[in-house]
């Protein structure tokens, strides 16, 4: 019953934020104008607000859920998409997209391929270790992360400091600004499908969290199932991150928050991690576009909102 209450509470909060997000921004939207068929209002609503809100809510949900999956599979409370190179691969990919192609869609595709490429290298490298331990994936992840950072640095060196370098830096800081309704269909569909997949795989994810020999003797083909789970989680994150740029802290914090609230790891907790992620990202984005005259990077606010929340939960647990 606790789950239902918590999930209902979080869903309500998310719904409120979605409404707020739809009507927050530089251009003041009014409901009566929108319903009255004002063309400009309708365009602003669809092209800017609706898409931005959708990416915020669903992206946050996806980051929360995939964070839960990474932390569980790697048995590491600090695991995040970085651990297998998703974020650094996406950054390098985005930088290459900004330098060599033009247009937001090209950057999105390039970042997506960068993230997948990095993870593919990590999983291939870790397959060389025949013992198939978790730690070999983590080690390969660290190596590929460093490599992708080097590539990113080289790309930055060759970038034109006035325009390209600024875009790269801005992309890495992450923002929901500039996502348009026309370019996000594919990403969101992929994200939705992978999320459904992750919820269906929940039982396997929990089985993977145990010791490897034990999981094997429970009938889990550890290598294959782990590959399936990690690829699904990676596709989820990549589909979001390639649209928004790097978003810090959501994938780390939302699952911890959910676990501290429910004190277990059932599918309800995974859903709660998603809802908290959505609340966090959307809330941060509303602040990012309303606090100052210029648009601020969303990661500033995800960390700013998230850190005190986590600390308060820890404080509550110890009391």
């Amino acid at each position: 019953m606790r789950y239902k209450l918590l999930c209902a509470l979080c869903s309500g909060l998310l719904a409120a934020l979605i409404l707020l997000s739809l009507f927050t921004g530089k251009y003041p939207l009014r409901l009566e104008e929108l319903l009255g068929g004002n063309e400009l209002h309708r365009r602003v609503f669809l092209n800017l607000r609706a898409s931005r809100t959708l990416v915020g809510a669903m992206g946050g949900f996806a980051l929360g859920v995939s964070g839960f999956v990474y932390q569980t599979v790697f048995r590491n409370p600090l695991a995040s998409p970085d651990i297998i190179g998703v974020s650094s691969g996406a950054s390098a990919g985005a930088a290459a997209g900004i330098l060599f192609f033009s247009g937001a869609a090209a950057v999105t595709v390039s970042a997506f391929l960068g993230a997948l490429g990095a993870v593919a290298v990590v999983l291939t490298l870790s397959a060389l270790d025949k013992t198939g331990r978790n730690s070999s994936i983590v080690l390969a992840g660290i190596a590929v992360h460093a490599l992708a950072q080097t590539v990113l640095m080289c790309l930055k060196l060759t970038a034109d400091p006035e325009r390209e370098l600024a875009s790269i830096e801005y992309w890495i800081m992450g923002s929901l600004n500039g996502v348009s309704i026309h370019s996000l269909g594919g990403n969101l569909l992929l994200c939705l499908l992978c999320l459904i997949g992750l919820f269906l795989l929940h039982r396997q994810i929990i089985l993977l969290s145990g010791e490897e020999g034990e999981a094997r003797m429970l009938g889990v083909s550890v290598g294959k199932i782990r590959l399936l789970v990690l690829l699904t989680a990676t596709l989820t994150v990549s589909s979001v991150v390639s649209l928004t740029g790097l978003i810090s802290f959501v994938g780390l914090l939302a699952p911890h928050g959910a676990r501290l609230l429910t004190k277990d790891n059932r599918p309800g907790t995974m859903a709660l991690a998603g809802l908290l992620g959505g609340v966090l990202l959307l809330g941060a984005d509303i602040l990012a576009r309303s606090v100052s005259a210029v648009e601020l990077p969303v990661s500033i606010f995800t960390s700013l909102l998230g850190a005190p929340f986590l600390i308060s939960l820890i404080g509550r647990r110890s009391s």
Binding site: G210, E211, G213, E214, R259, D264, N265
Partner: peptide, 15 residues
């Protein structure tokens, strides 16, 4: 076959 290791590696909060 079933196997009981010396110590089970379950480290999550589950029932």
């Amino acid at each position: 076959c079933g196997y009981i290791p010396q110590r089970s590696g379950i480290s999550l909060d589950i029932s």
